[in-house]
Every structure is written in C-alpha cells, then in structure tokens.
Amino acid sequence: MKLRTLTSSVAVVLAMACSSGEARSLMDLIPSPYQQGSRSEQHESRQSSLSQSEALSLYSTRQQQNSFDDCADKFPQNRPISMASVSPKMKPMALCSDNFAVLYSQTSKTPMVVVERLNSALLRDAKGEERTNAFYPDPRIPKGARAELSDYRGSNLDRGHQSPAADAPDQKAMAQSFALSNMIPQDPNNNRKIWSKVEKDVRKYAQRVDGNVFVFTGPLYDQGFQTIGENKVWVPTRLFKLVYDEKTQRAWAYVLSNGNTPIQKPMDYDSFVKLTGLQLLGNLPVSGSVGRVTSI
C-alpha cells in the first residue's frame, strides 16, 4: 500500500482501508500533551470488575468470532472496514458488540477504530440507563495481546470509552461498553470534561435529526507516544471522532490532543482526511461543510 509522508519525523504508520476505498494513517510529530494526576486512582476503589466467565457470557457465539459479520449494520451501508487491508503489524481483530464494532489492535492493545450507529430512538432508550463501572479485560482477546486492569493501575490515566457508556440502550450493551477493548488510556481532564462535551454534542445532534448517524472514534499515535503497564498499552497523543449523517450525507470530525486542551471547531471531512490520513468513509458520498454543523 502506498503511504504518503507528511513529515520526516513520522515514526508510527498505521495503514487501514474501508472495503469501499483505501484509507491511510500517518501521524505528524506532536509532543505528548497528557498530564499526570491522581483522579483516576481516586475512582479505582468505587469500580468493580467482571470475572472472565461473566464477561464472556455477555457475548453471543457470533460475537466471540474475529469477524464483523454480526455487526455490519454498525457501518454505513453495512460495509465494514476490510480486515485484509489493515497493516499486519497492528495484528488486527474484528470485535462485535450489541451497540458498536471495534477494529482492535493486538499490538497497541487498544482499539484502532470504534464504530457506532446512533439515532433518536436508540438514544431515547439509552437515556437513564444505570452506569455499571464494571471494567474487564476482553475475554475474546488472548492474554498478552490485550490490556489488563493492572496496566491502568498507577498510570494516573482514565480508561476512556470510545463508544460512550451513555450511548448504551440497555444493560447488556452498557456492560459490553466497559470492556477494555473499548478503552484507550486517556488524560482525566480530557476524558471527563473536553471529550465528554464532544460526546454530548454528538448525541444531541443524533437525537434531533432523522435517520442514522454513524460515529467513528479512535486514537492517533504520534512519534514519542508512551505506554503503560506490563502489557505496554499505547497511550494516544490525539483522539478523533468522525460523524457521518447518512440522510444528509454531511460529515465532520473532531481531532483533539489527549490532554487538557480547548475544544476546537469541528472540521470538514476533507480536512480530517488530510490531517490524519484516515479515509474512513471510503467512497461514500459526502456533502456539507463545517459551517453547517457548528451549531452542534
């Protein structure tokens, strides 16, 4: 796969593609901005975890397979990301849950992309669902290729949801959202303030429009990124959230540093692709500009 070099300092290359078109990810050199703190540790005692047998029981037989067959509907036009097009260096896995799909990396021990299909009916069901806070290592991923609870302990970083718990329409989906395969190591201020605001804005938009809104969320790793824990879980330097309104064909994205950074105005899809190299929508029609969605 031909890769476009953005700077001579790039050290991390993640090559991905949608089944409908090529996608590339090259990350610019940006110093890791996340800050240390104790808030993650303060919440540890108030959180529970599931045993591996309890966790495995959350997933159907089909969801226990390395395939997107059971969650193709979470992708626009039922067209999942092609596993064959992902760089083998990332050791990818396809993981299905009731409410989201995860393109997971056994190298970074984090998701590469998490995809959701949101709409007003689903979010009405999600409103008021009790948050479980029962984190657990994903039993579908082999030991040594996944994050463990111990990797986050002492890191002063949150286990940051990529598919938010607040998007879960029922208790089973809520429980599945706490798998570490849906988490990245995230700065607490970013996770609980800045990124939380982004998630709420996306929900508000999906609640008031007709039809489905597809959301792609994931980490970006620039040169000099750090790792945590015995399993060396990668700590992203930036996060992205790409939103695609299926009915209006509008698309926009947020790309924010993994730190206590101001929320920036969402960018249009072309700018997102140019900045990240991720052409996640493939050949889907895209119209609309950032100026039409700044009200979210």
Rank of each mutant, 00 (worst) to 15 (best):
G154L: 12
A134H: 03
A168V: 01
G144N: 05
G154V: 08
G144Y: 03
Q176C: 11
A165Q: 04
A165G: 02
P169K: 08
D167A: 08
E129K: 15
D187F: 07
N156E: 14
F135D: 05
F135K: 01
R117Y: 12
G144W: 05
N191T: 06
D125F: 04
W195V: 03
Q176V: 12
T132D: 03
K197G: 11
P137F: 00
L157H: 08
S181A: 14
Q162C: 13
R146C: 09
N182F: 09
S163G: 08
A121I: 07
G154F: 09
R159G: 07
E148R: 09
R192T: 10
A175M: 08
L157P: 08
Q186I: 13
A121K: 13
L122E: 14
L180P: 01
I184Q: 10
D158H: 15
A147I: 02
K193L: 14
A168S: 15
P142N: 14
E130T: 12
A175T: 02
E116K: 11
P137Q: 00
R140P: 01
P164Y: 07
A121H: 11
A147P: 01
N119H: 14
D138V: 00
L123C: 12
D170R: 04
D125L: 07
Q162P: 00
T132R: 11
S181R: 01
E148S: 10
